Amino acid sequence: MSEPTPLERLERLRSSIDNIDAALVHMLAERFRCTQEVGQLKAEHDMPAADPSRESRQIDRLKGLAVDAHLDPEFAEKWFNFVVAEVIQHHTQIADEHNA
């Protein structure tokens, strides 16, 4: 059997990337389903949308995981901050709707 051509290797790699992207989207959707429930709970009990101490602990934890996974920890922090900003926006919206 012959070695795959560069184009065949490229297509296999792209197929793997496409599968990983799909899995990431599904995992993010599940994460946001959970954070929506957190937002409801916070709204029902007049808790603040943001939790800076938890966010700080999570950043530290994710940066450690990133190092272990040979991923740039600064990238992991940027990703987390991006996601958390969206979550806080959702929590604020849920609280506003709850208090209306």
Rank of each mutant, 00 (worst) to 15 (best):
P73T: 06
A66D: 04
M47R: 14
S56E: 12
R57T: 05
K63V: 06
L71E: 09
L62P: 02
L65V: 15
D46P: 07
D72G: 09
A50I: 04
R61K: 12
P52Q: 09
F75A: 13
D60P: 02
H91T: 02
N81E: 10
Q40T: 07
M47H: 10
P52R: 06
Q89L: 09
L71Q: 13
H70T: 14
K78T: 04
R61C: 10
I88C: 00
S56W: 00
A43M: 05
I88T: 15
V83I: 15
A43G: 08
V83P: 01
K78H: 12
E44W: 01
A66W: 00
P48W: 01
A76S: 13
K63D: 07
E44T: 05
S56C: 07
D68N: 05
T92L: 06
G64C: 06
F80V: 03
I59K: 04
A50V: 02
V67R: 14
D60K: 09
S53V: 14
Q40N: 07
V84K: 05
D72C: 08
L62N: 06
E74K: 08
F80L: 13
E86H: 14
H91M: 00
D60R: 09
D51G: 05
A66K: 03
A69V: 04
R54M: 11
V67N: 04
V84Y: 00
D60V: 12
A49R: 02
A76Y: 09
M47D: 01
N81F: 06
G64N: 10
E74H: 08
A66V: 04
